[in-house]
Design a protein around this nucleic acid. Structure first.
Length: 561
RNA sequence: GGGCGAGUGGCUUAGCCCGGACAUAGCGUCAGCCUCCUAAGCUGAAUGCCGGGGGUUCAAAUCCCCCCUCGCCCGCCA
């Protein structure tokens, strides 16, 4: 089990301390050495400035004076490359890492007691999930998996916006339009069809807006018949989402309904607390003046007619999360940045724990932004269907001898890998345009590419039979692979501290790259004796690390493809 | 108008928070590799004023200022 006391961290801290002593500086430079070394330092430049000596000279002096200390406290050697200091861990570092990496659950940490709540997806139930929504789902689900891997107690929630205007429009459509469900039509697609039709009707006849308002008042007032209708259609839409999310290997622990925060009085309670804030302004509406924090507009909490707005329910929801969890994480689209910041600011004023918010930029189509209302979107279901079809075709071309059921099973795993990886690999702040060619690409920088490396490793292990574990490495390819394997627990740690799941996507791809080079240049099954043993050990470690990486990405680690 | 984010080879993309050693990789292009562990693979080549301009620094894709372009947001919607 890796933890705060991991081998890497111990060595890092030891070297850090020596650098502190030797330079007498407050500022210590010690980073990943990349291709140069295990760790590198540019401390010489800092010291050179302070003490007016050439950096290369100081680096040389450091090596002669502190080599011994480095060796004793960090089991590492140090070399000066001009002004740069390069630190190389001794063989035990890779040997330990390799030995850990062959064990099930590699990369997991000790169980932690803090409770984390993670909210993601939370799309309005007015139509199927589309390729924009599932960016939220996949970022959120990958983070969730990384948290669990790191030993956190985690609850994943979906916040159901069941009393919004969009839903009222859907209900109006069901009441007034030809709304029968078509043969074989999925619930969420059915609801989208009615929602789109209702919006067209509203465009033609503005009077309908008044009827929609009436529905909203009825539902907030708790009119039983209206509430029942809302619940029914929202539930049906969620049933549709459940199928999509299951196909994407995305899971939630709890669906939290927005209207519950009206019913249980939480919204009222949070509003009365807000009233007491010095920033509160009651002039018909209840609103907060957050201008001292840089927010220009008023943050409205309650309408003139006494009903609450979304923000009020969201505050109640977050106050509840704050009371029950130690760390709160929300995954939201970039369009929520302003209201997210206002929410955080208000919770702070109330003295509540504030959520950490992960924002992701929009996915658009080549012809422009997506819109459920206008019916302009690529649904996640269609995406899954098309990619699976393509995957089945590819599997059949490559492995015609396999049973059809096996090919189908591989195809669905490959499709899932392609979709999830294609989305999670780009950093959240990068705006993307959905592209069928990218979605259907199963080559390098794709999920299937990483699955393929894993399948190759499995194939070798299956043919190898038993072997004696051996962690003494020789060639450059062996060492490069082991170094990459050793980084896995550090990457998991980075993903959860920085809330950036694409680090893991990049890591898994690099691990597959390194493994493929090793595979190409270092024959395993044809080698003999100790060479065979250590290469098989490496293959086992690589296979297991690829498996753990893939599974944390929510991708099946299949053993043949 | 204000706020936030982005601009990196023909296309896509990492690095930016925390400045350092030849800017990461993919697609596409070109040249190679299956009597050898799955070619969804591997090797090599060409292609970059890291949007523009200033500044800070021994050192800037990275930090600061200005400008340009694009996206999102600025509702008693959610």
């Amino acid at each position: 089990m890796e933890d705060e006391t991991s081998d890497f961290k111990k060595r890092y801290d030891a070297i850090f301390k020596v650098l502190q002593e030797s330079s007498g500086s407050n500022e210590i430079q010690l980073v990943d050495g990349g291709e140069h070394a295990d760790l590198s330092s540019t401390q010489a430049f800092i010291v050179a400035k302070e003490k007016k000596i050439p950096p290369a000279t100081w680096a040389q002096d450091f090596v002669s004076t502190y080599s011994r200390a480095i060796s004793e406290t960090a089991s590492a050697t140090v070399k000066a490359a001009g002004p740069y200091l390069n630190f190389y861990f001794d063989d035990s570092y890779l040997a330990n890492a390799l030995s850990n990496a062959t064990q099930p659950g590699y990369g997991s940490s000790l169980k932690k007691t803090i409770r984390v709540v993670l909210e993601h997806t939370s799309a309005n139930p007015n139509g199927p999930l589309h390729v924009g929504h599932i960016r939220n789902s996949i970022i959120g689900d990958t983070l969730a998996r990384a948290f669990r891997k790191a030993g956190y107690r985690l609850e994943v929630q979906y916040y159901v916006n069941d009393m919004g205007r969009q839903i009222a429009i859907v209900i109006w459509g069901f009441d007034h339009l030809d709304s029968a469900q078509a043969e074989g039509e999925k619930e969420d697609a059915h609801i989208a069809r009615i929602y789109i039709a209702a919006n067209r009707a509203i465009e033609k006849d503005a009077a309908i807006t008044g009827q929609v308002d009436t529905l909203m008042q009825l539902v907030e007032g708790g009119d039983p018949a209206t509430v029942k209708k809302f619940r029914k259609e929202v539930s049906r839409c969620l049933d549709g989402f459940a199928v999509t999310l299951k196909n994407l290997n995305v899971a939630h622990n709890r669906f939290v309904w927005e209207s519950d925060f009206i019913r249980n009085g939480d919204t009222k309670r949070v509003i009365s607390r807000i009233k007491k804030l010095p920033q509160a302004k009651e002039e018909g509406t209840l609103a907060l003046d957050l201008s001292e924090f840089g927010f220009e507009n008023k943050y409205v909490i309650r309408r003139t007619d006494g009903t609450s707005v979304y923000a009020a329910r969201d505050l109640a929801f977050h106050a509840w999360k704050a009371a029950n969890f130690d760390r709160i994480i929300d995954v939201l689209g970039a369009d929520h940045k302003l209201i997210g910041a206002q929410l955080q600011c208000t919770l702070k004023l109330l003295g509540e724990r504030t959520p950490e918010i992960v924002y992701f930029e929009f996915v658009s189509l080549p012809e422009g932004s997506m819109s459920t209302r206008a019916g302009k979107f690529v649904s996640a279901d269609d995406l899954i269907t098309e990619v699976t079809k393509h995957a089945f075709h590819e599997v059949t071309m490559r492995r015609p001898e396999l049973e059809e059921s096996t090919r189908k099973s591989i195809a669905s795993s490959v499709a899932l890998a392609a979709i999830r990886y294609d989305i999670v690999k780009v950093s959240p702040e990068t705006r993307t345009v959905f592209d069928w060619n990218d979605a259907l690409n199963f080559e390098r920088q794709s999920g299937p590419y990483i699955q393929y490396a894993h399948a190759r490793a499995c194939s070798i292990l299956e043919k190898a039979g038993t072997f004696t574990e051996c962690c003494e490495l020789e060639t450059d390819y062996e060492i490069a692979l082991a170094r990459q394997i050793a980084k896995f627990p550090i990457v998991i740690g980075k993903v959860i501290t920085e809330l950036r799941p694409h680090f893991l996507a990049t890591y898994a791809r690099e691990l597959a790259d390194t493994f493929n080079s090793f595979y190409h240049f270092e024959p395993v099954l044809k080698s003999e004796g100790a060479v065979r043993d250590r290469r098989l050990t490496l293959v086992k470690a690589a296979q297991n690390t690829l498996k753990e990486s893939l599974e944390t990405l929510g991708i099946d680690a299949i053993s043949t493809m």
